[in-house]
Design a protein around this nucleic acid. Sequence first.
DNA 1: CGGGTTTGACCGGCGC
DNA 2: GCGCCGGTCAAACCCG
Length: 149
Amino acid sequence: MEELFQNGSSYAPFLSLTSHQNLKSEFHQGEEEEASKVIRSEGSSRSVAVKKKGKKQRFAFQTRSQVDILDDGYRWRKYGQKAVKNNTFPRSYYRCTYGGCNVKKQVQRLTSDQEVVVTTYEGVHSHPIEKSTENFEHILTQMQIYSSF
DNA sequence: CGGGTTTGACCGGCGC
DNA sequence: GCGCCGGTCAAACCCG
């Protein structure tokens, strides 16, 4: 499936997500300094201060599909859903459930095209894939890069 | 029961 | 300083 990306001018950084061993080295720009959480429970509610040290690389692409959940082989746990101002449809926030892997992902639909789903990855997986990529490869064929860092 | 989803509240940044 | 806006948390809930 690599040729798929070499076909395009710049291959997708999130490809490193899928092929954990091979092409991940090229996208080391920006150290993926994991955001350290400072939890201070001073009686009241939770206060989590997130230190943003390194810049996590983000990468977005859009797909035509009827379902929001793009199964890319990883396990995602939803941690939020919010409606954004310019878009009618809410945006969903996911996070990789692997221990120590802080990769995030957000999915949103376009108001103009309800069929188009924009998926944004943030961070790099530090572990191999769980499922087979066959399903995802099919998505790869129809997806188009929207923006990258 | 355990893990994932739901959902409202909370918090920080930014613009006015 | 306040209020909008976007992102995250966490408790309750749901489902296998």
